[in-house]
């Protein structure tokens, strides 16, 4: 069936000849925006910490100058033997790859890799590390955009993920996050925007919660309080 016929048939089911643009304002935006709106930055951060811990995420708070050390500690806590680092400005500025190489093998998700080569790195790594673009206080969710230095595989294939969460990206709830996504970079949506809330989980067998089905089994958030 072709597009015009499909749409025309839908119109006719709705009792008109052709589609008309309707007037529409999304309902209830006021009460959605009001939720948690009265929290200050620190209260919002603590709400994010609490809801993250409620979904089995390990949360560490640090400062920018201590970030590399915090990463090394978190990697030690996970017990990962190698890591895959997203190629992002913050890590470049802090020479994170260089710092971590003193402890363990580090691969970078660089644009110069081949698709297959990059996926093999991700499959072998013990932990994937990326900076979160946004975070949701209400649900303990981090948001990552796929882009050149940040492949989808970085936060998916390794058995553990560490998300670096600048405190300034924490928002009250989805309402603000989706609003920002809508107005992101030249109005062009990233090809894949992932909202992640804790380790991969299932309750498919007798309703028993098991963490680590296909995706990461352990998730760590490192909140950087001065960026």
């Amino acid at each position: 069936m072709d597009r015009n016929e499909f749409i025309r048939r839908t119109s006719s089911a709705l009792g008109r000849e052709r589609a008309q643009p309707p007037a529409w304002t999304t309902p209830g935006i006021e009460f959605r925006q009001r939720i948690m709106a009265d929290r200050n930055r620190e209260e919002m951060t603590q709400a994010f910490v609490a809801s993250s811990r409620a979904v089995s995420v390990t949360v560490i708070e640090t400062m920018r100058e201590r970030l590399n050390a915090s990463l090394a500690e978190a990697i030690g806590g996970i017990g990962a033997g190698s890591c895959l680092l997203a190629d992002q400005p913050l890590f470049r500025e802090l020479n994170t790859a260089g710092y971590l190489r003193a402890y363990l093998p580090v691969e970078l998700w660089e644009e110069s890799l081949t698709r297959q080569g990059a996926i093999v790195h991700a499959e072998k790594a013990g932990v994937g590390i990326a900076v979160a673009d946004l975070a949701v206080a209400e649900s303990g969710t981090v948001v990552v955009y796929s882009r050149s230095g940040v492949g989808r595989s970085v936060t998916l294939l390794p058995p553990a993920t560490i998300y670096v969460v600048p405190q300034s990206v924490i928002r009250p709830r989805l309402t603000q996050v989706l609003e920002e996504i809508k107005h992101s970079e030249n109005n062009e949506m990233s090809s894949s925007i992932n909202f992640v809330t804790g380790p991969s989980a299932t309750s498919d067998i007798e309703l028993v919660r098991v963490e680590g089905v296909h995706g990461p089994m352990q998730v760590v958030y490192i909140i950087v309080k001065d960026i």
């Binding site: 209400e138 992932n194 909202f195 992640v196 809330t197």
Partner: peptide
Amino acid sequence: SRASVYTTL
């Protein structure tokens, strides 16, 4: 749950 573990756009 407050959110599913993964929501992908």
